[in-house]
Design a binder for these strands. Structure first.
Length: 1063
RNA sequence: GGGCCCGUAGCUCAGCCUGGCGGAGCGCCCGGCUGAUAACCGGGAGGUCGUGGGUUCGAAUCCCACCGGGCCCA
């Protein structure tokens, strides 16, 4: 038979449960549940498989698991195909590390074939780890049919999408300023750029731009990148700010007022005098002569708005002069501004960082070296106001430390303007949790969305499916691999869709007969995962499956996917189907380390999932991640705090262990002795816990339906510790101990079994391992073989009794108060009190107390319970008066002491009654004078006799009567002996049911009498035959003998096993 | 600079939507229990509800401004 180990050890539990699941094939059966029933469709956000799973990932995967288990148990056929995001920069970088590649040329040398092969191998490796960790976690997705973004069939869906987009005019080629490493000759993604910021020293240049209409006046700009000046096309000001024209020895200068002092100090202008103040908008439109007009010929052709002052709200007063040099070919912001204003956007620097012919006098030189020439030219013309140095952060190539250069280049985009409105509309129909993630955050992102740049200059990715004719520029967007097989005039054998093979495919141009070659880009990986809604189910072959799943009921990822997956899914879905691809989105926030710092490999503070599972326990980690904070709030992961949930689970463990022990002892049969059959024997606490568990199921169900996972788990754990363990088990313990198989005892078993089966079912959604383990211990043959295969429990409304639940709350309050009153008097719980007096504070409280009178008596160890009327005091309470010196003192003056003693000599009730009816009472003092006492001079207090202790609770005031009559004394004495016998039994490791002989010696005749009178009670409690001795029992005649000093009495107890009795 | 989130006991968090006695767990202190025992139970101390203003009979809660932390965007 199963026996429960004494403490909850997650290692053995989880190992055993995993083995059980594997042997019985439970996960497979679970995935098959409800096939053919109503569908709940989930779309897995594919983890990027370029590293291992850490606890941050675990949080998201636990959310997925909880929702999917819940849906399954509710009877849905759940669609939950796993998926893996296989391509992308991080993988490419790791391949480069493995192969020792540093530049683009190295890739060519080693061969792209080799490169891609290595990438595939890496992806295989990580997928294997992710699957293993996910399974250990208990996240049962359909891994066998998992979608992978590197699969050709998957990539064909992207091609299909882009072909459609191209036909509709949504796929366009356009220019964009991107960061380049001139040494590696490659553009860098924003992610790569953020890797490489460093503090560097650069020139700090102040340059004068002569204003044409105001000879002798100059706009002053500040720059640290002189190599961008040849491409200058405008100077921007902030229209809201104030500018000044100041007269200096170097001409009249235009500078922002707020920055004047700083600029004057840095450039050594000395004294300056303000000629006039102008608003930024007044400057707009002024033409200037390009400071390098003579050196850079192209500027001769540039007409306004080129070479004028323009306005831009991004001009800040934080640094520089408040006038910003604009080079549309070298800055993303500049380019956007230029596009809006219609500025030319020359980019006279090549991808190797060398000035081109367009740069005129500077052509042929590296842009950094040519900077000196630029400075020299400005100096010669008197346009350099100041040349200094500055240390600032600037992006370097993370590979080779070369400073980056921003260059205009040709990229492919998906247009957003046509679908933006529909995306916003569709978004408003999506249910976001929490709501602000969608209504505020995501909406804001959508409103500001710009065309999506999807082209990347990389190797390991989905290739862009656009072929361009070398001769006439005609384009062909290919929709499938089959199209290549059919139409290409050159293609490798076998044909593979990845680079480099795809680059070998050539078409003949329909229009001119020329050769069409592929645009050499791969695609942004966000497009890979962003088509999962239809690519993951192979829409192209199986549209009917797609129709059944789409739009998906549920997705969940971290909040950073607002601009990532949440966006790209919506984008492609609206583009293709005009509809949001998901109905409900649960957003999570990030998991940080104990101190609230981001987990990162370089900091060394990452907690890997597999380590956490092994060292902290899967269920513990799951519950911890769910309970500590709402999932959409960031949480700090502190392994120390795990013990809180572990201790909660241990309490549950003890409950089941306790129940299991007695179920086995009595061969309890839940099939025949269920709660239905025994409800009529149930005590109030049984009905209460049954009501409570139904209320719990109702609230957990509702929380889960609202995706408030944290609330659900908190309520669940609270029930186990508060309701089930602290209240219920404590209340029924004595019934469980009953030797006889009474209906009342079986009713308690039935209630416990009823509660546990339901509770464990609900728990299995959150902590499947321990739930399964405990479920197996109390499972009866007609129950499903695994807790994971059970149905979500139905709330049995007729068993919810809100009045009883309320009444129990009152009873608990009374019990606590009585314990507190005992404590004040140092009166132990094992000593019964003669009388418990309850003065309820309300009629409801009174009803409650009366309803649960017997329960209260049992739990407080009271021989009798008296319930008073609302607000009534016990008859032993005596009213008295206390002088209030603060008011009485000033009124009585010197006579104070006499007034007080006069007051004391009176019957308090007489004075109180007079004060109540007359509002005053006249005192006659010894010297014959009178003193008029009013209500504010005295305070009415209640005095209790010594033996009556009170405590005020929320619902009632409670008094315990500590007068020890004979029966109380006797019971107290016997209970003291019983307790010590139990200690001895335990030391002898006796079975709970084993009978013993018990020899007791005590040198107090009162105790001896008590033992004789209560011998039956004693024998029942201790499972023994009592023998009272006139002398201490001798060790040689007993299995154990112990001596105590109890309340001044000498007590010696001996125990002897009874051979052949008990078992 | 803009958007969003957070700020409540030493720590971790409820309460806020819908205004009405400021809460829980952990930790700490004191005590109890001993047939769930590597458990369990009771009591206690501990608060400028980030700050300031407003609305209101009444504000942790609603409104405004500010401060601090975080995420995203620029």
């Amino acid at each position: 038979m199963y026996a429960l180990p004494p403490v909850y050890d997650f290692r053995t539990v989880e190992e055993e449960v995993r083995r059980f699941w594997a042997e019985r094939g439970i996960p497979k059966k679970f995935l098959e549940l409800n096939r053919g029933g109503p569908i709940f469709s989930f779309l897995e956000g594919p983890p990027t498989v370029n590293g291992y799973m850490h606890v941050g990932h675990v949080r998201g995967r636990v959310c997925k698991d909880v929702v999917l288990r819940f849906a399954t148990m509710q009877g849905f056929w759940v669609w939950r195909r796993a998926g893996w995001d296989c391509q992308g920069l991080p993988t490419e970088l790791e391949v480069e590390r493995i192969l020792g590649i540093r530049t683009k040329k190295d890739v060519e040398a080693i061969g792209m074939e080799r490169f891609v092969e290595e990438a595939n191998r890496l992806v295989d490796h990580y997928i294997q780890h992710w699957r293993k960790d996910s399974e250990t976690l208990g996240l049962w997705l359909d891994y066998d049919t998992a979608y992978e973004t590197r699969n050709e069939r998957y990539m064909e869906h992207i091609w299909y999408l882009l072909k459609r987009a191209y036909e509709n005019g949504d796929l366009i080629v356009s220019n964009k300023v991107v960061p380049f490493c001139p040494r590696c000759e490659t553009p860098l993604s924003s992610h790569e750029v953020s890797l490489g910021y460093e503090e560097v020293e650069d020139y700090s240049l102040y340059v004068k731009f002569p204003i044409e209409s105001m000879p002798g006046t100059y706009a002053v700009i500040w720059t640290t990148t002189p190599w961008t000046l040849p491409a200058n096309e405008a100077v921007a000001v902030n229209p809201e700010e104030t500018y000044v024209e100041v007269a200096t020895g170097k001409g009249n200068l235009l500078i922002a007022e707020k920055l004047l002092d700083r600029v004057a100090a840095e450039t050594g202008l000395g004294q300056v005098s303000v000629v006039r103040r102008l608003s930024g908008s007044e400057l707009v439109g002024l033409r200037y002569s390009h400071p390098l007009a003579e050196e850079v010929g192209i500027h001769a052709d540039h007409a306004p708005p080129a070479h004028t002052i323009v306005e831009a709200e991004f001009v800040s007063m934080e640094e520089g002069t408040g006038l910003v040099h604009i080079a549309p070919g070298h800055g993303p912001e500049d380019f956007e501004l230029g596009k809006r204003l219609g500025l030319p956007a020359p980019c006279p620097i090549s991808t190797t960082g060398v000035f081109t012919e367009e740069a005129g006098a500077f052509a042929g030189k590296n842009h950094r070296e040519a900077a000196e020439d630029v400075i020299a030219a400005l100096e010669r013309k008197g346009l350099l106001l100041h040349k200094g140095k500055v240390v600032h952060t600037y992006p370097l190539c993370w590979r080779c430390q070369t400073p980056l250069v921003y260059l205009l280049s040709r990229q492919w985009f998906l247009r957003v303007d046509r679908i933006k409105r529909l995306m916003l509309e569709e978004n408003s129909r999506v249910r976001w949790i929490p709501a602000w993630a969608g209504s505020a955050r995501f909406r804001e992102w959508l409103e500001n969305a710009e065309d999506w740049c999807i082209s990347r200059t990389k190797v390991w990715g989905t290739p862009l499916n656009v072929w361009t004719c070398e001769s006439c520029g005609a384009r062909r967007v290919v929709g499938s691999k089959a199209e290549i097989e059919r139409d290409a005039i050159e293609k490798p054998q076998p044909l593979r869709m990845h680079r480099p093979w795809i680059d070998m495919v050539v078409f003949r141009c329909d229009r001119c007969g020329g050769l069409m070659r592929r645009e050499p880009f791969v695609l942004d990986t966000w497009l890979d995962s962003g088509v999962a809604h239809f690519a993951s189910v192979d829409y192209l072959s199986n549209p009917s499956l797609f129709e059944r799943l789409f739009p998906y009921d549920f997705i969940t990822e971290a909040i950073d996917q607002t601009r990532g997956w949440f966006y790209t899914l919506l984008f492609t879905s609206v583009l293709l189907f005009g509809k949001a691809p998901y109905k409900t989105v649960l957003t999570q926030s990030h998991v940080l380390d104990r101190e609230g710092k981001k987990m990162s490999k370089s900091r060394g503070n990452v907690i890997w999932a597999s380590d956490a599972f092994r060292e902290l326990g899967v269920d513990n980690v799951r519950l911890y991640l769910l309970t500590k904070a709402q999932v959409w709030e960031t949480m700090n992961f502190d392994p120390e705090e795990i013990r809180v949930v572990r201790s909660d689970l241990n309490v549950l463990w003890n409950v089941v262990s306790f129940a299991k022990t007695y179920f086995d002892l009595d061969r309890y049969d839940p099939e025949r002795e269920g709660y239905d059959a025994y409800e009529r024997f149930a005590e109030p606490e049984d009905r209460w816990i049954v009501s409570r568990v139904n209320s719990l199921i109702r609230s957990v169900t509702s929380s889960l339906e609202r995706y408030e996972l944290t609330d659900a788990v908190r309520a669940l754990l609270r029930f186990a510790t508060e309701d089930l363990s602290r209240k219920y088990i404590r209340a029924v313990r004595r019934r469980f101990w009953d030797e006889k198989r009474t209906p009342k005892k079986i009713a308690a078993y039935a209630a416990t079994h009823y509660v546990l089966t339901r509770y464990l079912t609900v728990l299995s959604v959150f902590a499947p391992h321990i739930a399964e383990y405990l479920y197996q211990r109390i499972r009866s043959p007609s129950m499903p073989e695994s807790v994971c295969l059970t149905r979500w429990p139905k709330v049995e409304e007729h068993r919810i009794d809100p009045d009883l639940e309320d009444a129990m709350e009152v009873a608990d309050d009374v019990i606590s108060s009585s314990l507190a009153a005992r404590q004040k008097a140092g009166y132990k719980l094992r000593w019964p009190v003669a009388r418990l007096i309850i003065s309820p504070k309300s009629a409801r409280a009174k009803d409650a107390v009366i309803r649960l009178l017997d329960y209260i008596a049992r739990m407080t160890n009271s021989l009798r319970v008296e319930v008073l009327d609302v607000g009534q005091e016990p008859r032993e309470a005596v009213k008295d008066l206390e002088p209030v010196l603060r008011s009485l003192g000033p009124a009585a003056g010197k006579r104070l002491n006499e007034v007080i003693s006069a007051l004391r000599s009176l019957r308090p009730m007489e004075v109180i009654e007079s004060l109540e009816s007359e509002g005053e009472y006249v005192l006659r003092l010894p010297d014959g004078t009178l003193f008029t006492l009013t209500q504010e001079h005295v305070q009415v207090v209640t005095r209790l006799p010594e033996w009556l202790r009170e405590h005020e609770g929320r619902f009632a005031r409670v008094y315990v009567d500590l007068k020890e009559d004979e029966s109380v004394k006797a019971l107290s004495a016997v209970n003291e002996v019983i307790r010590r016998v139990q200690v001895l039994r335990k030391e002898l490791n006796l079975e709970v049911t084993e009978l013993v002989d018990c020899r007791v010696y005590v040198d107090d005749s009162g105790w001896v009498e008590a033992l004789k009178t209560l011998s039956e009670h004693f024998e029942e409690e201790t499972r023994s035959r009592l023998e009272i001795l006139g002398a201490p029992p001798r060790p040689e005649e007993n299995d154990a003998v112990r001596e105590w000093e109890v309340g001044g009495k000498r007590l010696v107890v001996g125990l002897k096993r009874t051979v052949g009795r008990g078992s």
